[in-house]
Amino acid sequence: PQPTVASHVPFADLCSTLERIQRSKTRPEKVKHFKEFLDSWRRFHDALYKKAAGVADSFYPAMRLILPQLERERVAYGIKETMLAKLYIELLHLPKDGKDAQKLLNYRAPTGPRGDAGDFATVAYFVLKQRCPRQGCLTVQQVNDVLDSVASNNSAKRKDLVKKSLLQLITQSSALEQKWLIRMIIKDLKLGFSQQTVFSLFHRDATELYNVTTDLEKVCRQLHEPSVGLSDISIALF
């Protein structure tokens, strides 16, 4: 099978983009960082497929990670903060009563001056920073593949396999990547950037098509070309 765009894009590049969006104070800055990533993806797509007809590959593998709350293809992960905390404690061999284990388990408690109380992903980031690889090695496609197996093993009630998949993600990712992975799994990215904004930057007709179909994959595939609008594809639709 032809390698997809997602199989070429390091997950780290998506995460650094999300980090920049989140850190930006102004809307134009946030927009700029998102557009840079999206435009690179589209240009790379053009170079990879050379405008071949009938290409199903699209921005979808990234979009479903950017808007995890709209995920429909994957069933629930069955994972919340407490389970992740226990998993990290086990994996990192943290003493159960030690400072870091307690930080993870009591992530809601107000802590220091960082103002990260209540945000498990940020608490985990500071615990993980000293303890995991500087650089991750996963691509966007690999992350989606592992999340697929987390979801399907969860629905098959194979907790051992869910854990195995999560370990795979954790051992191959940097602390920054894990912070974003956690947010994707919890399905709250905290970007300060609405779903509406993401859609409108992707394509002028994206919100409309999403409202009709609630199908993120279809939105990404059919509106891949910014110059091709809903009126052009509606003949095929209806």
Binding site: D13, A47, L48
Partner: peptide, 15 residues
């Protein structure tokens, strides 16, 4: 590293 396009050429990492 093959003959195909390289992602790194398309996406410039911010300094």
């Amino acid at each position: 590293v093959g003959d195909g396009p390289q992602w790194g050429v398309f996406f410039k990492k911010a300094a």
